[in-house]
């Protein structure tokens, strides 16, 4: 197997899925955001977004904080340092196989 194919085979599958890639891309551009912002931007359903976020949280790529703004429940999301590093590596890997 040549080097490029090996890189493709080694792409981070957690990030590589289009829905999660969209989420990570948005989170990479903000300090933090809430669930609604991400839902509006990605146009995913609530269930779909929740499930992708759970997967990313399980991988340690996303930090999820349940809080309140006034009396309104709010779910704050941010990319963890591990998620940031994984996303950078993913982009580097993609660049190297172009």
């Amino acid at each position: 197997m040549n080097e490029q194919l090996r890189t493709i085979a080694g792409l981070d599958r957690v990030i590589h899925e289009p829905g999660r890639l969209m989420i990570v891309s948005y989170l990479a551009g903000v300090e933090e955001c809430d669930f609604l912002f991400l839902m509006r931007q990605t146009e995913m359903s609530k269930g779909n977004l929740s499930s992708h976020l759970s997967r990313l949280e399980k991988a340690g790529y996303v930090e999820i904080e349940k809080t309140y703004r006034g009396k309104v429940p709010m779910t704050l999301l941010r990319l963890s340092p591990a998620g940031e590093a994984a996303f950078k590596k993913y982009l580097r890997d993609l660049d190297s196989v172009r």
Binding site: G29, V30, E31, L36
Partner: peptide, 23 residues
Amino acid sequence: WPRAGYFVPISDSRKRTGIAVAG
């Protein structure tokens, strides 16, 4: 925020990856 959602733009000192580069 109740319509579009809430977010804090990334600070200059922590610019990262693609979107930040576009910015």
